[in-house]
Every structure is written in structure tokens, then in C-alpha cells.
Amino acid sequence: MKLHIRHETRYDYETSVRSSIQRLHLTPSAFATQKLLSWNIEAPGIDKALIYRDGFGNQVHVITSQGAHDHVMVVAQGVVEVEDAAGLVRGLVCPAPDNVFLRQTTATEPSPALVELARSAAARQQKPLDLAHELMREIHGRIVYQIGVTHSHTTAAEALADGKGVCQDHAHAMLSALRFLGVPGRYVTGYLVTEGMLPATASHAWAEALIPQLGWVGFDAANCKCPTADYVRVATGLDAPGVVPVRGSRRGGESENMTVSVLVQPAEQ
């Protein structure tokens, strides 16, 4: 399936900003079942951007805006061709050793409730693939998808305790349980065709687990399924703070307001 993606991020500043810098994780990855047919980023300073591959293999752009300005607009768009591989990720280059993804972070540190969830799932399912599916189903049932009840710093433990959250929280909870059980897990950002193909206010996120004899497999606990051809994979890391699509800092300005619009739909053949 060929998907057209348009991801807009706008920062509006209450007072004039002297300069700003943005780090972008906005370029989809390429591997066996995902091909980047076209991709373009429009942003102030993009023509002079520092472009590099980070330790996880993600393509990163660093852009700067100099001189007084009251807003910054970043638009990433293009066409990606995706094949359904039942969540299996093959041919993706990630320089980081697999054991790095056993590391818990502030966002994924397991609470007693998460430890109990993980142990109970492991008692029911001993095979790694079955276990990962069991964890996905359990987390999907324990954290109801609800926008606006969590924030960027909410931890997996907090989301599970509250019983509500968004895809970021589902992914963090999945990673917390996987890593506690000794299964490497990595956080993934990307895009998903939404119901009715309406614009969304954020990109999507899910987890990947390293399954023996299979390799890395994606698990989207928010939707309780493995990624299909409706998903586009962008970047990977240990947790959400490490792979925020657009993250920046500024000199000057008293406050900022960020608005995001994401549209994913089948591309015209």
C-alpha cells in the first residue's frame, strides 16, 4: 500500500524569539517492507540543516532559525510504500546492541502493578511470541485509550494506575513489562491511517519486541494488534522523550503554543 503523509508542526510564540533550534525525527525508516518513495521537509533553515544518523539508526535533522520571529512551521510530507508483514521488521539497520533495549527509563520503570501484570502474563504464556501477544492484550484491556488525560511526562506506572492514556502510554507499559521479563523492547514512532482518514493531532507510537527465531516484531497495545500496511515506521529509541518528532529550544520569547496536524491517507495510484 502506498500512503501519503503530511505532518505539520507549528510553534507560535507570545513574544518575539531571537533564535530557535529544532531537532527533527521526521524521516521514515527504510527496510524490507517499507520503501520511501518521496519525502520532503519544509522548515526555516532546512537547506543548511545538520543531517546525521543517531545511535539507533534514525535520520535526524537539526535546523536553526535566526533573527526575530514569532512562529516556526515545520512540514514533513511524502509517499511511503508499505507491505503487511504482521509486524515483523526485517532489514532495518540499528547500530545499538539488542541488550541496550533491556534498559528501563524513567518512563518505563515498572511499578509493583506492572511487575504483577508481567509475571501473570508470563505464567500463562511461556513462548516469547505468545507472551508478547498476551502482554499486548492485557495492557490494552487495562489502559483505556483516552486523549487528554496524560501528558508527555506521564510514566507507564502512572498510566496503568489511572487506567487511561494514549498510544505513548500503552507503548511505555508494554516496554516496561517486556524489559522486566528480560525481553528487549524498543519504542517506535510513526504514522497510522486513522478511521475515516481524518487529520490527527499527533503521530502514533507502539513497541517492538525481540522474538527469538523471528527478530523484531511490532505490538500496538493501543489498538491491540501488530502493525499492518496501515502503519508507517519513522524512528526508534528507548522511550518517547528520546524520539520526539519535533523538539526544540529558543532564545527569547516568554511562552509558546505548539499545534500539530497529521494526515495519513492512501496515495493516488
Rank of each mutant, 00 (worst) to 15 (best):
R53D: 11
L114D: 05
H140W: 14
S120D: 14
K127V: 13
G78A: 07
G87R: 03
E81V: 02
R53C: 04
V60P: 02
V80A: 11
M73E: 06
A107H: 13
A49C: 01
E83S: 09
P97F: 04
F101C: 08
P128S: 13
R103H: 11
I63T: 11
E109L: 05
E109Q: 03
C94E: 12
I139K: 08
C94V: 15
E109Y: 03
N99T: 04
A113G: 05
T106M: 12
G55I: 08
V75L: 14
I51D: 04
V93R: 13
L114G: 05
F101D: 02
G55M: 10
A121F: 04
T105Y: 06
A76I: 10
L131N: 11
H140N: 15
P110F: 05
D130I: 01
Q77W: 01
A76L: 12
F56E: 10
E138Y: 00
E83Y: 03
E83A: 09
A132D: 12
N99G: 01
S111N: 13
M73L: 09
F101K: 02
E109R: 04
R137E: 14
I63G: 03
N40P: 00
M136K: 07
A107V: 00
R103T: 14
V72H: 04
R124P: 00
P95F: 06
Q104E: 09
A118R: 10
G57S: 09
V79E: 11
S120F: 02
D47I: 00
C94Q: 15
A132P: 10
Y52K: 11
R53S: 12
Q77G: 02
V62W: 00
A68S: 15
G91R: 05
Q59M: 09
V100C: 07
K127Y: 00
L131K: 11
V79N: 09
K48W: 00
I51R: 14
R137V: 01
V60F: 03
G78C: 07
D70W: 01
L117A: 01
Q104R: 01
R137G: 10
E81Q: 14
Q125C: 14
A122T: 04
A76C: 12
E116S: 15
Q104V: 02
P112D: 06
Q66C: 02
V89R: 07
E109P: 00
V72I: 15
Y52Q: 07
